[in-house]
Protein backbone atom coordinates (compact mmCIF):
# COMPACT_ATOMS: atom_id res chain seq x y z
CA UNK A 1 0.00 0.00 0.00
CA UNK A 2 2.06 2.89 1.37
CA UNK A 3 5.21 0.82 1.13
CA UNK A 4 6.69 2.83 -1.70
CA UNK A 5 6.43 6.23 -0.06
CA UNK A 6 7.63 4.75 3.23
CA UNK A 7 10.77 3.38 1.60
CA UNK A 8 11.41 6.71 -0.07
CA UNK A 9 11.15 8.36 3.34
CA UNK A 10 13.57 5.84 4.85
CA UNK A 11 16.03 6.53 2.03
CA UNK A 12 15.79 10.29 2.45
CA UNK A 13 16.23 9.82 6.20
CA UNK A 14 19.33 7.63 5.75
CA UNK A 15 20.84 10.04 3.23
CA UNK A 16 20.13 12.89 5.62
CA UNK A 17 21.96 11.15 8.43
CA UNK A 18 24.96 10.40 6.22
CA UNK A 19 25.06 13.95 4.90
CA UNK A 20 24.87 15.49 8.37
CA UNK A 21 27.37 13.03 9.77
CA UNK A 22 29.98 13.64 7.11
CA UNK A 23 29.57 17.38 6.76
CA UNK A 24 29.48 18.38 10.43
CA UNK A 25 32.70 18.35 12.42
CA UNK A 26 31.75 20.79 15.13
CA UNK A 27 31.33 18.73 18.26
CA UNK A 28 28.66 21.08 19.71
CA UNK A 29 26.39 20.46 16.74
CA UNK A 30 27.12 16.74 16.77
CA UNK A 31 26.22 16.57 20.47
CA UNK A 32 23.01 18.44 19.76
CA UNK A 33 22.11 16.00 17.01
CA UNK A 34 22.89 13.06 19.29
CA UNK A 35 20.51 14.49 21.87
CA UNK A 36 17.84 14.93 19.23
CA UNK A 37 18.31 11.26 18.44
CA UNK A 38 17.96 10.20 22.08
CA UNK A 39 14.88 12.35 22.53
CA UNK A 40 13.42 10.93 19.33
CA UNK A 41 13.79 7.46 20.82
CA UNK A 42 11.98 8.59 23.97
CA UNK A 43 9.22 10.27 21.97
CA UNK A 44 8.81 7.19 19.77
CA UNK A 45 8.61 5.03 22.86
CA UNK A 46 5.86 7.06 24.50
CA UNK A 47 4.12 7.59 21.18
CA UNK A 48 3.54 3.87 20.80
CA UNK A 49 1.80 3.83 24.16
CA UNK A 50 0.06 7.20 24.17
CA UNK A 51 -0.37 8.09 20.51
CA UNK A 52 -1.36 4.70 19.19
CA UNK A 53 -2.80 2.76 22.11
CA UNK A 54 -4.22 5.84 23.84
CA UNK A 55 -2.75 5.03 27.25
CA UNK A 56 -1.12 7.95 29.04
CA UNK A 57 2.09 7.66 31.01
CA UNK A 58 3.33 10.47 33.23
CA UNK A 59 6.25 8.45 34.52
CA UNK A 60 8.02 7.40 31.38
CA UNK A 61 11.36 8.89 32.39
CA UNK A 62 11.51 6.07 34.96
CA UNK A 63 12.26 3.54 32.22
CA UNK A 64 14.80 5.90 30.67
CA UNK A 65 16.45 6.03 34.08
CA UNK A 66 16.28 2.29 34.67
CA UNK A 67 18.09 1.72 31.36
CA UNK A 68 20.77 4.22 32.33
CA UNK A 69 21.26 3.06 35.92
CA UNK A 70 21.30 -0.65 35.15
CA UNK A 71 24.05 -0.25 32.57
CA UNK A 72 25.92 2.20 34.81
CA UNK A 73 25.96 -0.19 37.75
CA UNK A 74 26.76 -3.24 35.64
CA UNK A 75 29.53 -1.74 33.53
CA UNK A 76 31.12 0.38 36.26
CA UNK A 77 30.61 -1.46 39.54
CA UNK A 78 30.74 -4.98 38.12
CA UNK A 79 32.80 -4.32 34.99
CA UNK A 80 30.38 -6.15 32.70
CA UNK A 81 31.07 -5.41 29.02
CA UNK A 82 28.51 -2.90 27.64
CA UNK A 83 27.36 -5.34 25.00
CA UNK A 84 26.13 -7.65 27.76
CA UNK A 85 24.81 -4.78 29.86
CA UNK A 86 22.56 -3.67 27.00
CA UNK A 87 20.20 -6.65 27.09
CA UNK A 88 20.24 -6.51 30.88
CA UNK A 89 19.29 -2.81 30.93
CA UNK A 90 16.55 -3.17 28.35
CA UNK A 91 15.38 -6.46 29.85
CA UNK A 92 15.21 -5.03 33.37
CA UNK A 93 13.05 -2.13 32.20
CA UNK A 94 10.78 -4.48 30.28
CA UNK A 95 10.45 -6.82 33.24
CA UNK A 96 9.58 -3.97 35.58
CA UNK A 97 7.12 -2.62 33.01
CA UNK A 98 5.49 -6.01 32.83
CA UNK A 99 5.13 -6.32 36.61
CA UNK A 100 3.97 -2.74 37.12
CA UNK A 101 1.86 -2.71 33.97
CA UNK A 102 -0.35 -5.60 35.01
CA UNK A 103 -2.17 -3.71 37.76
CA UNK A 104 -1.58 -0.20 36.38
CA UNK A 105 -2.99 -0.69 32.89
CA UNK A 106 -6.27 -1.91 34.32
CA UNK A 107 -6.79 1.71 35.24
CA UNK A 108 -7.94 4.28 32.74
CA UNK A 109 -8.16 8.03 32.37
CA UNK A 110 -7.07 10.10 35.36
CA UNK A 111 -6.28 7.06 37.45
CA UNK A 112 -3.85 5.78 34.85
CA UNK A 113 -2.24 9.21 34.77
CA UNK A 114 -1.86 9.25 38.54
CA UNK A 115 -0.74 5.62 38.70
CA UNK A 116 2.06 6.10 36.18
CA UNK A 117 3.04 9.36 37.84
CA UNK A 118 3.27 7.64 41.22
CA UNK A 119 5.37 4.87 39.73
CA UNK A 120 7.73 7.40 38.15
CA UNK A 121 8.10 9.21 41.47
CA UNK A 122 8.90 6.01 43.35
CA UNK A 123 11.59 5.04 40.83
CA UNK A 124 13.03 8.53 41.08
CA UNK A 125 13.11 8.29 44.89
CA UNK A 126 14.86 4.91 44.63
CA UNK A 127 17.55 6.44 42.39
CA UNK A 128 18.01 9.22 44.92
CA UNK A 129 17.87 7.26 48.17
CA UNK A 130 19.55 3.95 47.35
CA UNK A 131 22.93 5.67 47.44
CA UNK A 132 25.04 2.57 48.07
CA UNK A 133 24.18 1.37 44.58
CA UNK A 134 23.14 4.44 42.60
CA UNK A 135 25.38 7.08 44.14
CA UNK A 136 22.38 8.91 45.53
CA UNK A 137 21.47 12.49 44.79
CA UNK A 138 24.96 13.46 43.71
CA UNK A 139 24.88 10.99 40.89
CA UNK A 140 26.85 8.11 39.45
CA UNK A 141 30.26 8.86 37.97
CA UNK A 142 32.81 7.04 35.83
CA UNK A 143 30.60 5.13 33.42
CA UNK A 144 32.89 3.66 30.74
CA UNK A 145 32.55 4.59 27.07
CA UNK A 146 30.90 2.19 24.70
CA UNK A 147 33.31 -0.34 23.26
CA UNK A 148 32.07 -3.25 21.24
CA UNK A 149 34.92 -5.55 20.25
CA UNK A 150 37.48 -3.36 18.57
CA UNK A 151 34.88 -0.70 17.80
CA UNK A 152 35.02 2.21 20.18
CA UNK A 153 32.36 4.89 20.27
CA UNK A 154 34.33 7.63 21.95
CA UNK A 155 34.24 10.25 19.25
CA UNK A 156 31.13 12.38 18.76
CA UNK A 157 30.95 11.35 15.14
CA UNK A 158 30.93 7.65 15.88
CA UNK A 159 28.28 8.14 18.55
CA UNK A 160 26.22 10.26 16.18
CA UNK A 161 26.10 7.43 13.64
CA UNK A 162 25.40 4.84 16.32
CA UNK A 163 22.48 6.76 17.81
CA UNK A 164 20.90 7.61 14.50
CA UNK A 165 21.19 4.07 13.15
CA UNK A 166 19.38 2.94 16.29
CA UNK A 167 16.75 5.65 15.70
CA UNK A 168 16.25 4.47 12.13
CA UNK A 169 15.89 0.86 13.25
CA UNK A 170 13.38 1.81 15.95
CA UNK A 171 11.39 3.90 13.46
CA UNK A 172 11.23 0.96 11.06
CA UNK A 173 10.22 -1.31 13.92
CA UNK A 174 7.45 1.03 15.07
CA UNK A 175 6.13 1.54 11.55
CA UNK A 176 6.01 -2.19 10.99
CA UNK A 177 4.12 -2.78 14.20
CA UNK A 178 1.64 -0.02 13.44
CA UNK A 179 0.90 -1.45 10.00
CA UNK A 180 0.31 -4.95 11.29
CA UNK A 181 -2.44 -6.97 12.89
CA UNK A 182 -1.23 -5.99 16.36
CA UNK A 183 -0.84 -2.33 15.41
CA UNK A 184 -4.34 -2.09 14.04
CA UNK A 185 -5.67 -3.70 17.19
CA UNK A 186 -3.74 -1.14 19.27
CA UNK A 187 -5.23 1.73 17.32
CA UNK A 188 -8.66 0.19 17.75
CA UNK A 189 -8.18 0.40 21.53
CA UNK A 190 -7.47 4.09 21.15
CA UNK A 191 -10.60 4.67 19.08
CA UNK A 192 -12.87 2.71 21.39
CA UNK A 193 -11.86 0.18 23.97
CA UNK A 194 -15.36 -1.29 24.22
CA UNK A 195 -15.74 -1.76 20.49
CA UNK A 196 -12.21 -3.21 20.29
CA UNK A 197 -13.08 -5.88 22.83
CA UNK A 198 -16.35 -6.53 21.02
CA UNK A 199 -14.54 -7.44 17.81
CA UNK A 200 -12.28 -9.82 19.70
CA UNK A 201 -9.23 -7.77 20.63
CA UNK A 202 -7.69 -8.87 23.91
CA UNK A 203 -7.22 -5.30 25.09
CA UNK A 204 -5.56 -6.08 28.41
CA UNK A 205 -2.78 -8.25 26.97
CA UNK A 206 -2.15 -5.87 24.09
CA UNK A 207 -1.89 -2.82 26.31
CA UNK A 208 0.58 -4.68 28.49
CA UNK A 209 2.63 -5.72 25.46
CA UNK A 210 2.89 -2.21 24.12
CA UNK A 211 3.76 -0.88 27.58
CA UNK A 212 6.61 -3.39 27.84
CA UNK A 213 7.82 -2.56 24.33
CA UNK A 214 7.67 1.13 25.09
CA UNK A 215 9.65 0.66 28.31
CA UNK A 216 12.27 -1.27 26.34
CA UNK A 217 12.75 1.55 23.82
CA UNK A 218 13.03 4.13 26.61
CA UNK A 219 15.61 1.98 28.40
CA UNK A 220 17.59 1.70 25.18
CA UNK A 221 17.71 5.49 25.07
CA UNK A 222 18.84 5.47 28.72
CA UNK A 223 21.61 3.02 27.91
CA UNK A 224 22.87 5.23 25.10
CA UNK A 225 22.62 8.31 27.31
CA UNK A 226 24.70 6.77 30.12
CA UNK A 227 27.55 5.77 27.79
CA UNK A 228 27.46 9.14 26.08
CA UNK A 229 27.73 11.36 29.17
CA UNK A 230 29.60 8.93 31.50
CA UNK A 231 27.69 10.48 34.40
CA UNK A 232 24.05 10.17 35.46
CA UNK A 233 22.04 11.68 38.30
CA UNK A 234 18.44 11.26 39.47
CA UNK A 235 17.43 14.74 38.31
CA UNK A 236 17.66 13.67 34.68
CA UNK A 237 14.90 11.09 35.21
CA UNK A 238 12.43 12.98 37.37
CA UNK A 239 8.91 14.25 36.86
CA UNK A 240 9.98 17.12 34.59
CA UNK A 241 11.74 14.64 32.32
CA UNK A 242 8.56 12.62 31.98
CA UNK A 243 6.65 15.78 31.15
CA UNK A 244 9.25 16.71 28.54
CA UNK A 245 8.63 13.37 26.80
CA UNK A 246 4.87 13.94 26.87
CA UNK A 247 5.40 17.42 25.42
CA UNK A 248 7.47 16.05 22.54
CA UNK A 249 4.73 13.60 21.64
CA UNK A 250 1.98 16.19 21.96
CA UNK A 251 3.80 18.76 19.83
CA UNK A 252 4.79 16.28 17.14
CA UNK A 253 1.27 14.96 17.04
CA UNK A 254 0.05 11.81 18.67
CA UNK A 255 0.05 8.70 16.54
CA UNK A 256 2.73 9.91 14.18
CA UNK A 257 6.20 8.38 13.97
CA UNK A 258 7.68 11.30 12.02
CA UNK A 259 5.90 13.67 14.38
CA UNK A 260 7.94 12.19 17.22
CA UNK A 261 11.09 13.14 15.34
CA UNK A 262 9.77 16.65 14.83
CA UNK A 263 8.67 17.09 18.45
CA UNK A 264 11.99 15.79 19.75
CA UNK A 265 13.97 18.08 17.44
CA UNK A 266 11.96 21.14 18.38
CA UNK A 267 12.19 20.54 22.11
CA UNK A 268 15.92 19.88 21.95
CA UNK A 269 16.68 22.91 19.80
CA UNK A 270 14.31 25.44 21.36
CA UNK A 271 16.32 25.93 24.59
CA UNK A 272 19.48 26.30 22.53
CA UNK A 273 17.97 28.94 20.29
CA UNK A 274 16.53 31.04 23.06
CA UNK A 275 19.45 31.88 25.27
CA UNK A 276 17.53 33.24 28.21
CA UNK A 277 15.24 30.27 27.92
CA UNK A 278 16.33 28.45 31.07
CA UNK A 279 14.48 30.94 33.28
CA UNK A 280 11.40 30.70 31.11
CA UNK A 281 11.68 27.02 30.33
CA UNK A 282 8.81 25.93 32.53
CA UNK A 283 6.51 28.79 31.59
CA UNK A 284 7.08 28.07 27.92
CA UNK A 285 6.64 24.29 28.31
CA UNK A 286 3.43 24.79 30.21
CA UNK A 287 2.06 27.23 27.66
CA UNK A 288 3.01 24.95 24.78
CA UNK A 289 1.32 21.96 26.38
CA UNK A 290 -1.86 23.88 27.09
CA UNK A 291 -2.22 25.75 23.81
CA UNK A 292 -1.32 22.82 21.59
CA UNK A 293 -3.74 20.56 23.46
CA UNK A 294 -6.54 23.12 23.37
CA UNK A 295 -6.18 24.41 19.84
CA UNK A 296 -4.30 21.70 17.95
CA UNK A 297 -4.88 18.38 19.70
CA UNK A 298 -3.46 16.62 16.63
CA UNK A 299 -0.07 18.25 17.00
CA UNK A 300 1.71 21.35 15.83
CA UNK A 301 2.42 20.36 12.22
CA UNK A 302 -1.05 19.10 11.45
CA UNK A 303 -2.60 21.91 13.48
CA UNK A 304 -0.78 24.59 11.51
CA UNK A 305 -1.69 22.82 8.28
CA UNK A 306 -5.36 22.81 9.28
CA UNK A 307 -5.25 26.53 10.06
CA UNK A 308 -3.55 27.26 6.74
CA UNK A 309 -6.16 25.29 4.83
CA UNK A 310 -9.00 27.01 6.64
CA UNK A 311 -7.39 30.35 5.85
CA UNK A 312 -7.11 29.52 2.17
CA UNK A 313 -10.66 28.31 1.94
CA UNK A 314 -11.73 31.57 3.51
CA UNK A 315 -9.64 33.57 1.09
CA UNK A 316 -10.74 31.82 -2.06
CA UNK A 317 -14.34 32.63 -1.47
Amino acid sequence: MQDKSTYILYTIFTLGICLLGWSIDNSYYLQLLIFIGLNTLLALSLNMLMGYAGQISLGHAAFYGIGAYVTAVLTTTYQVPPLLALPAAVGAAMLIAWIVGMPTLRLSGYYLGMGTLGFGMIVHIVFREWSSVTGGASGFVGIPPLEIGSLSFTSDKAYFFLVWIVVLLVIIMCRRIIDSRVGRALRSIHDGEKAAAAVGVDTRTLKLQVFVLSAGIAALAGFLYAHLIYFISPGTFGFMASIRIVTMVVIGGMASVWGALFGASLLTLLPEWLHAFSEFEMVVYGLILMTVMIFMPRGLTRGLLDIYQRYRKHHDR
Partner: peptide
Protein backbone atom coordinates in the same frame (compact mmCIF):
# COMPACT_ATOMS: atom_id res chain seq x y z
CA UNK B 1 0.72 21.98 31.40
CA UNK B 2 -0.93 24.47 33.72
CA UNK B 3 1.01 23.11 36.68
CA UNK B 4 4.32 23.52 34.86
CA UNK B 5 3.27 26.99 33.74
CA UNK B 6 2.30 28.11 37.24
CA UNK B 7 5.48 26.69 38.72
CA UNK B 8 7.51 28.58 36.13
Amino acid sequence: GASIFLRG
